[in-house]
Amino acid sequence: MKSRPHPGALERLADEDLMTLVDGKDPDAFEVFYDRHGGAAYSLAHRIVGDPGMAEDVSQEAFLSIWRSKARFDPARGSVRAWALGIVRNRAIDALRSASRPAPKLDRDDETALESQPAGERTDAEAIRRETAGRLRQALGGLPREQSQVIELAYFGGFSHAEIAEMLGKPLGTIKGRMRLGLDKIRATLAEGIPGEDAPEAYL
């Protein structure tokens, strides 16, 4: 095995630098990348497809596409994490579409995580990930239901705005307006800062 400059050097690299090594086909760097984002990726896939086995397949495909450089990270377009989770989201929606799609449940608040194990808290990173998720859910929970509903159907359900309009029996313009109001409200919460998060300089 090759040696590293010192132990833990990879772990201390910023995501962007880690991605440069991953692009260079460094399996050790990829392992650190997976350990950093695999949990969030699997959790997202599970939230979308609602099935542990399918979530595992989706996560594996997404990470392999990153490893094989089918998807390239562009630092101008935001953080590595947002980019990677965007890839997972799109894969999960594709998987949902190619499976026979169940009728959408409009109220999904209580149907997450029935079978999979909740994330452990063996490490600080895991504890922070869970705590941040909880706080974010709280912030999202503060949205009027009609706004969070259209956002969830679009992002987690993979429905187009036209499909959502039809599903809810509302004009398209109303749906667009609700999406916009909801995102604006989340954005305002973000600008105030999420406790436990780095001040989001890049957001301001």
Partner: peptide, 24 residues
């Protein structure tokens, strides 16, 4: 950034150990 926040709001689960093994 508001959209980037959505995936991180979901209940955080433990990915199966097999996933990491197969992937690596």
């Amino acid at each position: 950034p508001a959209v980037d926040l959505l995936p991180r709001s979901v209940e955080q689960l433990e990915p199966p150990a097999d996933l990491r093994k197969r992937l690596m």
